[in-house]
Each structure stands twice: as structure tokens, then as C-alpha cells.
Design a protein around this nucleic acid. Structure first.
Lengths: 224, 224
DNA sequence: ACGTGAACACTTGTTAGACAATATTTGAAC
DNA sequence: GTTCAAATATTGTCTAACAAGTGTTCACGT
């Protein structure tokens, strides 16, 4: 019996949306930068409706913003948005660790991701972002819920957009992140969901306040 | 100083998407029914690209499904989807009640919605759906988080789509729903988040299994 | 009769060009 | 310098069209 090899023939709109997303995440597009439909159409050499569709997709994802008859702009997420996003993350993720702990389930992929963090030598300051995201995503994906994974991915993409604005900042202490992750995993294996959720909340709150402060907000650990 | 009166000049695409959604929820469109772009364009007397945009919006919301070069169809959500949706609801909502209880916050709108449920005389069997949704939505909205509210609303719209398929079924016992809501609100005021979350989980699990069973699934209270 | 394969119709993906409606900017008048 | 009006830029929508993919029919050969 032949094995099915999954291939995806992505459409032009998909390709443009994907590339715009990459440019957004790599900082190629500054916050509040204007993205007219004609510009996008011109730079990819496609028709305007095609560019329009790609832009509208990113607007739906929250990466771009635009009002009626206004040109789309890169979302400039401030401290308020950061707190909104991280609170949503905390809601989803702390409930996830509660239920993972109840099943004493320690996702293998999360362990791997955290090992990758430990293995980091001093590269660029934000080399830790990728394995860190992978750690948190693997916790979410471990529950195997399509819609939860999709919602969380949407939040992660907004976080990545924020991060492009603080590339220079020294936000994150790699070893501390690793240690906290390790403790969370241990609590999952021990079945202590309460403690794991509490620790995760602290972990996210710390990251949130650093990011919010870097984006010009005042320190406000209780905000949310 | 003149008071600002907020008006929304919705676009044609918005209007069509809205109307299609209503038709979806009112059962005017059967599950798995085909919705070609030309048909939609013809029935609203607009150009095909306009209809296309409306269809793509509903596809993004999960109300329609479509593959590349295939005609869009009404999503026919089965027991598996119901469990996926309700588990996502439970994750969001049980964490919400935990945190509402921690603040001993009892949302006034939730109290109102539950009073509306109690005031129901025997109308159509699914007259309870609207105030029930409103009860749960008001709990979510009480935390004042933009992204959580948006995610939850997306889940609710999928639930509504499921419900249109079981209109005839006697799914819900009004007084039981009211009582359970009442107990949840009481636990919020008492600050007992654990108990409130547990009760809410049971409440949603019951609704989930009734809905899943009505959609042809086998009883499986532990699924998810 | 049955499976094969080619022609066909249907649908979607994408493009081009155009016009109207709305925002934004420029410029001129006071 | 401020304010109003014209010019420009941009988006929303339409018409028409072609290309490409999907599903179906139907004749054909075995």
C-alpha cells in the first residue's frame, strides 16, 4: 500500500502572507509602517486584489491593523497589548499545566526544547526565543486540542511581533528561564498542578513585565 | 460638547458575511451544503470577488470549510469537534472562574442573564440558548481581556452552528441549567475558585455529552 | 459488463482595468 | 498662522476575462 506523502501547494496569497509575516518578525517592517495594497502588489508583482487578500489575512491575525478606507499599518503593540496577550497566555497555559499535572504527563517535546535552551552558548540575545516558544507551544500541543493550539499560536505570533522591537534589549536570562522550565516540568511529573500553575504564572508575569517595560510601560506587576 | 454617537458603516462584505452567519445559525443552510461563489454573488447581487471575500471570512471563522479549488461547504461538526470545542471552552472558562473567585467578583451581567433563564416560560426548546450563551460570555468578558473575549466568541459561534442541528432534540433542562449557574455564581462570591471551576467543568461536560450524543457520537464522558 | 481515459462543464485562482467613495495632503485665501 | 477648498492617494467594488484545477460523462476498448 502506497504511503501518502503530504504536500501542500500553497496559493500566491498564502505565499505573500507568509513572506510578509517573516518580514514582520525579522524586523524588516517597522511598527506603524504603512503597507498600501498597491505597494505590496508592486513589490511581489501581483495584482492588487491578491495583495489585498494577503493584507486582510494578516489583519485578521492581528499583525496589521487598519480601519475602513485607511491604509494598513504594522500593529504597534504597547504595554497594554503586552499585558492583554500575556494574560491570555497565562489563562490558557496555566489551565493546561493543571490538567497535564493531573495526568502526570510530561511532554517529551517540552523536555527537548528546554534541553536546547540549556545548550545555548552566548549567541545573539534572542536566540533563546525560538526554543522558549517551542517549550510553551509543546505544553499546549500536548493536550491535543485543535482549537486551543490555534488560539495559542495566534498569541505567540503577536508576542513575536513585540519581540522584534526589543531585539537589542537584554530581556532574558537564559539560565533562569531554563531553571524555571525545569521546575515546571518536575511539578508536572509530581502531579502538583497547583504549584505548576502558580510557578508558570510567575514565569509569564516576569517575562510580561520585562517586555512591557521595554515597550515603554511603567512597572506594574499587578496589572492585567 | 457634542456626544459621539458611534455608528458603523459596514461594508458590503461585512453585511454579506453577517447575513450568511445568521442563515447558518437559523438553520437556513444545511450542514455540508455547497456555497459556490457564483451562487452567493447571485443571491446578493454582488460581484464574485465580493462574495469570495465573505466566504473566506466565514472559512476563517470555522463556520465554512473548503479546500483549494473546492467549493465551500457548511462545516458539519461532529462529536469529535464538539468535544474539541467544549474542552477549549472549559479551559478558558474554568480558569476565568478561578480568577474571578480569587477577586470575589460576581459579574452583574451574569446574574441578569441567569435571571432571564429563570424567567423563561415554555417557549421553543432552544429559547434558553441565548441567555445561556450570554451567561457564559459575561463571565469571560468580566476579566476585560480583549483577546480572551475574541477567542471565546469564536468558540461560541461554532457551538451555535452545532445547535442548529439539534433544534428538535430536548437537550436542555432549563431549571437545572439555572440552578447550576446559580451555584457557580455563589461560589464566585464565596471565593472558592476550586469548587467553582469543578462545577463549571461538570456543567460543560454535561452539555457537551448531550450535544455530542445528539450529533451521533457514543457516550464518552471521559473523552477529550 | 467493466474499467480506462479523454472530452466536457463547473468552479476557483488570478489578473487587468475602471469607477466611486473616502482619506490625506497640498495649496491658497484670509 | 489658521481655515477652507481643491488635488491627490488609497481603498471598496465592479465587470470581464483567462488560466488552472476538479468532477463528471461518455464513448471506447478489452
Amino acid at each position: 500500500m502506497p504511503v501518502v506523502i503530504p504536500v501542500a501547494a500553497i496559493s500566491i496569497v498564502d505565499a505573500i502572507a507568509h513572506d510578509l509575516r517573516e518580514r514582520l518578525f525579522s524586523g524588516g517592517l517597522s511598527p506603524a509602517a504603512a503597507l498600501t495594497e498597491t505597494d505590496v502588489a508592486g513589490s511581489y508583482d501581483v495584482a492588487r486584489p491578491t495583495a489585498k487578500a494577503a493584507i486582510e489575512r494578516l489583519v485578521a491575525e492581528g499583525l496589521l491593523v487598519r480601519g475602513a478606507h485607511k491604509t494598513a499599518r504594522v500593529a504597534d503593540l504597547g504595554p497594554i497589548d503586552v499585558r492583554d496577550i500575556y494574560l491570555a497566555r497565562a489563562y490558557l497555559e496555566s489551565e493546561v499545566v493543571r490538567r497535564l499535572a493531573a495526568a502526570r504527563s510530561v511532554p517529551a517535546e517540552a523536555v527537548r526544547a528546554n534541553a536546547d535552551i540549556a545548550a545555548l552558548t552566548n549567541d545573539t540575545p534572542l536566540a533563546v526565543v525560538e526554543p522558549d516558544m517551542r517549550f510553551h507551544l509543546s505544553l499546549i500541543d500536548a493536550v491535543g486540542n485543535e482549537r486551543i493550539s490555534k488560539m495559542y499560536r495566534s498569541l505567540v505570533s503577536e508576542v513575536r511581533l513585540c519581540m522584534t522591537r526589543v531585539q537589542t534589549l537584554k530581556l532574558l536570562d537564559t539560565s533562569m528561564i531554563h531553571d524555571e522550565h525545569e521546575r515546571i516540568l518536575a511539578l508536572l511529573g509530581a502531579g502538583d498542578g497547583e504549584a505548576a500553575a502558580r510557578l508558570l504564572d510567575d514565569h509569564l508575569a516576569r517575562a510580561r513585565e520585562r517586555l512591557a517595560a521595554a515597550l515603554g510601560g511603567t512597572a506594574d506587576p499587578a496589572a492585567g
